[in-house]
Amino acid sequence: MTKYPMTLLGAEQLKEELRVLKTEKRPRIVKDIAVAREHGDLKENAEYHAAKEEQGFCEGRIQDIEGRLCNAQVIDITKIANHGKVLFGTTVTLLNIDTEVEVTYKIVGDDEADFKTGRISLNSPIARGLIGKEVDSEVEITIPGGVVEYEIVSVEYI
């Protein structure tokens, strides 16, 4: 079975979501269903149908999270010696050579990626162009808007 890389923080966030779903949301939904059943005829009981639908979504999300955690290869980048090389889990600061604008990205798994917060997927064009490169290297990365030249300013294992 294929393992998918995930940062330690990503795994902890999924475990917390799973805990909330199983210990808080699932019991609340069961109570909501019980209360809705007391209202009588289930065929025309909107509360009952809404609670059952929410239960289906909740159970589906629980299964999804358990599957992701089961297939995750959790990597704690803080346990790896920093040799200035860009790896999965590293935080990279780049300088756009043309515009002289600095950007910082953390390379994470597909499920954790959120460009707005600076977390980019290992499979994104930028991350693929950076993996294996070192501090002070200049790299050309092909993105949908064209080719961009960056200098790797820093690589942090945080």
Rank of each mutant, 00 (worst) to 15 (best):
residue 146 G to N: 15
residue 130 L to H: 08
residue 122 L to I: 14
residue 3 K to W: 12
residue 105 Y to S: 09
residue 93 T to D: 09
residue 13 Q to P: 03
residue 104 T to Q: 14
residue 3 K to G: 02
residue 12 E to M: 09
residue 98 D to G: 00
residue 34 A to G: 03
residue 135 V to T: 14
residue 97 I to G: 00
residue 106 K to F: 01
residue 113 A to T: 10
residue 127 A to Y: 02
residue 57 F to Y: 14
residue 143 I to D: 07
residue 152 I to Q: 04
residue 131 I to A: 10
residue 103 V to H: 06
residue 13 Q to M: 13
residue 102 E to L: 04
residue 85 K to M: 15
residue 56 G to Y: 02
residue 94 L to I: 07
residue 157 Y to K: 06
residue 131 I to S: 06
residue 75 I to G: 03
residue 28 R to C: 02
residue 63 Q to L: 12
residue 49 H to E: 12
residue 62 I to H: 05
residue 72 A to L: 03
residue 144 P to S: 11
residue 66 E to G: 04
residue 15 K to E: 15
residue 96 N to G: 00
residue 35 V to M: 14
residue 2 T to W: 15
residue 94 L to S: 05
residue 51 A to F: 02
residue 112 E to P: 03
residue 60 G to A: 10
residue 37 R to N: 08
residue 2 T to Y: 15
residue 15 K to C: 04
residue 119 R to F: 14
residue 3 K to M: 13
residue 57 F to V: 10
residue 153 V to E: 15
residue 130 L to Y: 13
residue 139 V to N: 01
residue 10 G to N: 12
residue 138 E to R: 03
residue 150 Y to G: 00
residue 88 F to T: 10
residue 27 P to F: 05
residue 13 Q to D: 10
residue 97 I to H: 01
residue 60 G to T: 07
residue 133 K to D: 00
residue 96 N to A: 00
residue 155 V to C: 02
residue 25 K to D: 06
residue 14 L to C: 05
residue 38 E to W: 02
residue 62 I to G: 09
residue 34 A to F: 12
residue 83 H to L: 12
residue 8 L to D: 15
residue 3 K to I: 04
residue 117 T to W: 05
residue 27 P to S: 15
residue 86 V to D: 01
residue 146 G to T: 10
residue 31 K to V: 06
residue 17 E to A: 11
residue 53 E to N: 09
residue 142 T to F: 10
residue 75 I to W: 09
residue 70 C to R: 13
residue 110 D to W: 05
residue 54 E to G: 04
residue 100 E to T: 04
residue 56 G to H: 08
residue 131 I to K: 08
residue 35 V to C: 07
residue 156 E to C: 08
residue 7 T to Y: 15
residue 82 N to S: 06
residue 8 L to M: 11
residue 124 S to V: 07
residue 149 E to R: 00
residue 48 Y to A: 02
residue 28 R to H: 14
residue 31 K to C: 03
